Simulated scan of single mutants.
Amino acid sequence: MSSALQFPPRLAESADADRLDAWLAMRRPLPVPEARARRLSLDALLAQGGQGVCVMLEAGHGTDGTHLVHALLPATLVHSLAHAGKVAMAADWWCDATGDPGREAFDACMGLLADWCRAHGIRHVLAAPSLQPGGGSPQGFVPDASGLWRRDCIPAAKSLG
């Protein structure tokens, strides 16, 4: 990773929920019922209980000393008959309005998502074609028959210790 990214991407956790919820509300305010639904979806992804995961990118420090959120890549686990099991579906790419994190940040977040998939036995990441900043194919992805981008993930070997 080059020096253009101040912080490496990381998996968001339940402790990040309030900060991410507020950040999402600033990016796209919703009426109360929809905002509650978005928060429930966010909480489910942050719990990492088999519904999915969120990869986040932080940048700089806020006035309270916490890192500022720069980008968020939520991915939902869905069953795919075409891919013979669960796949990670990335359909959202949220980035800070003050600066586009660009292709390098997007690829870094997708790389971490692929690593997480390998570690959890998920063999494929599917991404909406419109997610890639600047267009073109995301790094490591190929066109899938479904019309989405696909990245194959070879599961990590398990070791008993």
Rank of each mutant, 00 (worst) to 15 (best):
M1R: 13
S2K: 11
S14Q: 08
S14P: 00
D16R: 04
A17V: 03
D18T: 05
L20M: 13
D21L: 11
L24E: 09
L24V: 04
A25F: 06
V32W: 03
P33W: 01
E34A: 07
E34I: 08
A35H: 02
R38I: 01
R39F: 02
L40T: 07
L40K: 10
A44N: 10
G49Q: 13
G49S: 10
G50P: 00
G52D: 05
G52H: 03
V55D: 03
M56V: 15
M56C: 12
L57M: 05
G60F: 07
H61L: 15
G65R: 15
V69Q: 08
A71N: 06
H79C: 10
S80N: 05
S80C: 01
S80W: 00
H83E: 09
A84D: 06
G85V: 02
G85A: 03
A90T: 13
A91K: 14
T98I: 12
G99C: 13
P101F: 14
G102T: 09
D107A: 15
A108K: 15
C109K: 02
M110S: 13
M110V: 04
D115A: 11
H124T: 13
H124R: 15
L126S: 02
L126G: 05
A127G: 13
S130D: 12
S130R: 15
G134R: 05
G135I: 02
G135T: 05
P138W: 12
P138M: 11
Q139S: 14
G140N: 09
F141E: 05
P143I: 07
L148R: 15
W149E: 06
R151Y: 01
I154C: 09
L160A: 14
G161W: 11
G161V: 13
